[in-house]
Design a protein around this nucleic acid. Structure first.
Lengths: 109, 109
DNA sequence: GGTGCTTACCTAGTTAGACTAGGTGTATGC
DNA sequence: GCATACACCTAGTCTAACTAGGTAAGCACC
C-alpha cells in the first residue's frame, strides 16, 4: 500500500490551479480529484486545502461562487482567473526546473 | 539565465545526504558541490545549511569531526553514518514517488 | 599596511506552508 | 436511530527554510 506523502512541500497551489484548469470545481471535489488522480499518493488535508483556497482567492488566482455540487448540495465553486492561468504556467515551469535539478542529483541516471 | 529555486521544499536533507554519499565533505563544500552540480539551479543558503547539518547530526545521520579543507583551512568534516545511508535510501524513494505523482499531474505527458 | 575577496562557520529571529484536531450542518443508507 | 459521506471552516502548532546579520583566517593587490 502506497504510503502517502506527508507534506506537499509547496506544491499545493500548483496542484489546485492545475485541477481547476480542467474546469470549475468545489473544494471537496478538488481534493478528491487530486487523490484519485495520484492513486492516493498525494493526500490533500482539508486543513491545508481550505486555507490555500482563501490565499489564492486573495491573490486573485481563483474566484469563488456559491452553487451546487453534482450531488445537489451547497458548494463553493472555484474557477481559474486569467491571472491564475498565468500563475499556473509559472509554477509548472518552476516545478519542472526544480524537480529536474533535484532528480538529477538524487536519482540514478 | 536560470533563476534559482527560492525554496528547497524539504529536499535539503536528502541533497546533503546524497552529497556525503560520495565521501566526507565540510559544510561549505557541500553547498558548493550542490550548486555546481545543479548548474546553480539550486542555491543552498548558509542559514539553511548549517542548521540542517546540526539537525542531521542530532538524528545520527551524519558525524562531524574538525579537520582541514583542501585549502588547508580549519573545517568541520561530515560523513554519513550507517543510519544516514539508510535514511538516504528512504528519502530518495520518497522523493521519487512524490515527484512522480506531482509531475504526472502537472506536466504534460 | 590597508582594502577587498574568498573561504568557512555560526546564530537570532521571521516567515510561510502544511499540519493536527477539532468544529458545523445536510443527506443517505442500513 | 446511527453511521457514513459530503461539504465547509478554523485555531493553534510545527518545521523548514529564509533573511540578515556576525566571526575569523588567508590571499592578492597596490
Amino acid at each position: 500500500m502506497a504510503v502517502a506523502a506527508k507534506d506537499l512541500h509547496g506544491t499545493l497551489d500548483a496542484l489546485i490551479l492545475k485541477t481547476l484548469s480542467w474546469g470549475p470545481r468545489h473544494g471537496y471535489a478538488i481534493a478528491r480529484w487530486l487523490e484519485d488522480t495520484s492513486a492516493d499518493e498525494l493526500v490533500i488535508e482539508e486543513g491545508s486545502l481550505y486555507p490555500a483556497l482563501y490565499r489564492m482567492e486573495r491573490k486573485g488566482w481563483i474566484e469563488a461562487e456559491w452553487g451546487e455540487s453534482e450531488l445537489g448540495r451547497k458548494a463553493k465553486l472555484y474557477r481559474l482567473t486569467t491571472v491564475g492561468r498565468k500563475q499556473l504556467r509559472a509554477e509548472t515551469e518552476e516545478w519542472a526546473r526544480f524537480a529536474g535539478a533535484v532528480s538529477r542529483i538524487l536519482l540514478p541516471a
